[in-house]
Write a protein that binds this DNA or RNA. Structure first.
Lengths: 238, 238
DNA sequence: GAGTGGTCTAGACCACCGA
DNA sequence: CGGTGGTCTAGACCACTCT
């Protein structure tokens, strides 16, 4: 009864990883190699790999293979640090790659959250953020165009917060955060170089200026295995 | 090329759900029925169901079938509300079921986080929390026994916070929170009545009294599809 | 072109569930 | 008991990546 066969493979691979025989970013044996080695069908080997993926221990690059996940980033959504500052404090190196940017009209759902009327002008910026060559998250940022005229002439591989502060004298003083675990749609998965349907963390942030206006609305899709949230709160109770 | 066959099944089921033909807690057709209906193998049908599970749209009860997920709870880790207060404000009804409780010695890892020495006396309480008959999370709570002598004589289907406050005059004023997406081990999965390896959210909380001592350390395993975190923060920046 | 994962077939046996 | 999902086999073809 007890041990399903795929569990044996799972445990074996976990041991290899914790013993350091496989380390961060190393490629695992191929599905066919594993099924040979354990005298199992390829589907069984794959079952084991999918299980490790759910746990966040390994990840896959589309049709290239399975790899050991690096240590999770630690992200504090209550901290004022920018993405790069957060990385620097953990001795890691990140890159931000703009994918697209345009001036467009706010769709209904976005307009509602941003407290604008449908069709209001908004900038839509899409960026990829990576750490040590590995894509970590995709973000879509909607910015109220009336608050930041001419925004598109700036360099979006920089911190947006700094652009807001330096060029528009806008500071964010309040943020609403919303997040849950789900899975990636086809396009976002492709942009993150993972398989469609991979688990992810969806984080939405609505950021207000001190006048109480919504400066930006940000939708982020994080690889679920890339991040660990950590924060400290006063007056918690439960 | 484009559409894999399982995607057709995924879309079909999503439509059924959004059209209300399948609603909350309804049972989906069995894997064999689906594979007949779509002229696919059972593995393909199952692939579709696993995909919907990752998205949080459906869930399974061990060997009983697949069901439509209820609306996610909204949980604000920064709020002082207790579990039942949180549920009440969303017009939902919860139950807390104690699984076990004992006086034991703090293992090393726990002692470290709680700033105790290894082997210090701690109470370990394990509870299941459900909403409308559906298991939502398992929690393991370690309590510094020196701060709450005789704790075990209380009723743990009640709010622990209230027990601390009423019987021990202890109030939590600071909380460290740590969370990430992973998957359930065999035992916890069983306690939540889901399959081993189901995706989950692991939330750890370290709760301090106003003297800066650790009153309790809480490890929670949430079904990943059961919850959405939402919070509002001052002075956010990024 | 060789190797990889992505998808798929058509079966099988088992353990557990509910009636 | 029959029905369900849980696990598994031994293949297959495809699309893509790497070299």
């Amino acid at each position: 009864m007890s041990l399903p066969q795929y569990k044996t493979i799972v445990d074996h691979l976990k041991n290899q990883i914790s013993a350091g025989k496989l380390s961060t970013q190393d490629k695992l044996p191929s599905e066919r190699q594993l099924s040979d080695q354990f005298n199992a069908s390829r589907i069984t080997a794959r079952e084991a790999l999918l299980q490790l993926e759910r746990e966040g221990v390994i990840y896959r690059l589309n049709r290239r293979g399975w790899f050991v996940s690096p240590t999770r980033l630690i992200y504090d959504p209550t901290s004022p640090a920018t993405f790069n500052q957060m990385l620097a404090s953990q001795n890691r190196i990140g890159e931000t790659t703009p994918i697209s940017y345009e001036l467009t009209e706010a769709p209904k759902a976005i307009a509602t959250v941003m407290d604008l009327s449908e069709g209001s002008p908004v900038y839509l910026i899409k960026r990829l953020r990576s750490v040590e060559q590995r894509p970590i998250l995709i973000e879509q940022i909607y910015v109220d165009a009336n608050l930041c005229p001419g925004l598109l002439k700036h360099d979006f591989s920089q911190s947006l917060t700094e652009i807001f502060s330096i060029h528009y004298q806008k500071e964010v003083t309040q943020t609403g955060v919303n997040m849950y675990a789900t899975s990636l749609d086809e396009q976002t998965a492709q942009e993150l170089q993972v398989s469609a349907g991979s688990p992810c963390l969806e984080i939405k942030r609505c950021r207000f200026t001190d006048e109480g206006r919504v400066l930006e609305y940000d939708i982020e899709y994080w690889r679920h295995d890339a991040v660990e949230l950590r924060m400290s709160l006063g007056h918690g109770q439960n």
